[in-house]
Design a protein around this nucleic acid. Structure first.
Length: 376
RNA sequence: UUGGAAGUAGCUCAAUUGGCAGAGCACCGGAUUGUGGCUCCGGCGGUUGGCAGUUCAAAUCUGCUCUUCCAAC
């Protein structure tokens, strides 16, 4: 598929690691890859304003088809002038298809070849999403990148189920592509295949032949050990198109970002940063810190010495801990600002390291200072 | 001073006829990966104000005592 609104170019390959630097052009601007994409499920990165997201260096945001379909509804967002206008975010937006909710909301859904019947978690009403419905919703939302409606299999998963889910994902990918028509919106296919090497490779090849603008790698980070996820990335890497962006869906702990980039991943998204922030945990260059812990009550230093975010340049650990203890919502806001900035800053460093052909050195430096015993 | 009420975990309170003294909050810790999560899980914490007595058994019944609150004076 050629689309003048979207193109991806690899600008440099790290001589030391083979990791790549690139640029993805979209109607709302260029995205320097590799990149971490903050998640704003319901047209909002929880606790954050669009202005703050811009201030911390966000290049592209994620939002969610399933959640926006239920509330406020895509027609309202279309009426508002589209998702960018609605949330006053004028850089690129990627929308997830709702496929993951089929997985994460298991128990209140029925999957058939035609599509999936959900029971709304908001009011219990029955809802139906198919590949076509997902495309219609995402086109109404007007995101820059739409994701194909896929079937995410769990971990562990038997071979037969994994194969069936993968094959249905491929059929649905074809239906998504057939139904999708917005020229100013890119459609990404999603590789599935659970934790079976042959299925993963088959999925990567099948989707590559379908010529999507970019590719999601789905069904990972669903409870498996990290080495298992890394192995899957290694296996499929040779079969992922070189000239297309690769998006590892749902991954975003600091160590996973580095390991993913080393395995050729260009894009990541993850709710981890904002979720743990609201519950009082922050990333630091030395490892995770649970800021609510009593030992920080008299710590007047910043969350992270090396961070340039608003929280770290203005407030102490003791103050932010106090805000959490007092249940002041600003505690979660400051921690969110910090955690998002931490990951965005880390990706800036990774891009710099690739440009300077020293990503393996960067990885070693990271592990030397980062305490993995308290990681995710 | 007199009369009344009440004393149980750091706080607010439960505990059937006398039968293993609990909860919420607080405090401490853990979890969280394409967000049903300002959420969830766990832990610490007690001579039941004190001293005697009755009883197989007392937070509970009796006596004395201390403290607090209320009302009169």
């Amino acid at each position: 598929m050629s689309n003048p609104n979207f193109s991806y170019e690899v600008t440099h390959v790290c001589k030391q690691s083979g990791a790549r630097l690139g640029v993805l052009h979209t109607p709302h601007g260029d995205i320097q890859t590799p990149i971490y994409m903050p998640v704003g499920t319901s047209a909002c990165v929880k606790a954050m304003t669009s202005r703050e997201m811009e201030e911390i260096g966000t290049q592209i945001l994620l939002s969610n088809t399933y959640h926006l379909h239920l509330r406020p509804g895509e027609e309202l967002i279309r009426e508002a002038g589209g998702l960018h206008q609605f949330m006053d975010w004028h850089k690129p937006i990627l929308t997830d298809s709702g496929g993951f909710q089929v997985f994460s909301l298991a128990g209140i859904r029925k999957i058939k070849e035609e599509g999936v019947t959900f029971q709304s978690h908001l009011d219990g009403s029955r809802k139906f999403i198919s590949p076509e419905v997902s495309m219609d919703i995402q086109q109404a939302l007007g995101s820059d990148i739409a994701m194909a409606f896929d079937v995410c299999s769990p971990y562990p998963c038997d071979y037969k189920t994994a194969k069936e889910s993968m094959e249905r994902t491929h059929r649905w990918a074809a239906r998504c592509k057939e139904h999708h028509s917005r020229e100013d919106q890119a459609l990404f296919g999603i590789v599935q295949g659970a934790f079976y090497e042959d299925l993963r490779i088959e999925s990567a090849k099948t989707l590559a032949d379908m010529d999507f603008i970019g590719y999601g790698i789905g069904g990972l980070s669903v409870g498996e050990p990290k080495p298992v996820m890394y192995e899957m990335l290694d296996k499929i890497r040779p079969f992922m198109p070189e000239n297309k962006p690769r998006y590892l869906m749902g991954v975003g702990s600091p160590d996973c970002l580095i390991e993913g980039v080393l395995r050729g991943v260009d894009m990541f998204d993850c709710v981890l940063a904002t979720r743990i922030a609201r519950n009082g945990s922050v990333f630091t260059s030395k490892g995770r810190v649970v800021i609510k812990n009593g030992k920080y009550s008299h710590d007047f230093g910043p969350l992270d010495e090396a961070c340039d975010c608003y929280a770290c340049t203005h407030f102490s650990r003791a103050y932010i801990r106090h805000l959490f203890n007092a249940k002041e919502i600003t505690g979660g806001r400051l921690a969110s600002i910090h955690n998002l900035r931490f990951l965005l800053h880390m990706m800036e460093e990774i891009r710099q390291a690739i440009a300077e052909d020293r990503l393996l050195d960067y990885r070693d430096e990271f592990y030397a200072r980062y305490d993995l015993t308290k990681n995710f």
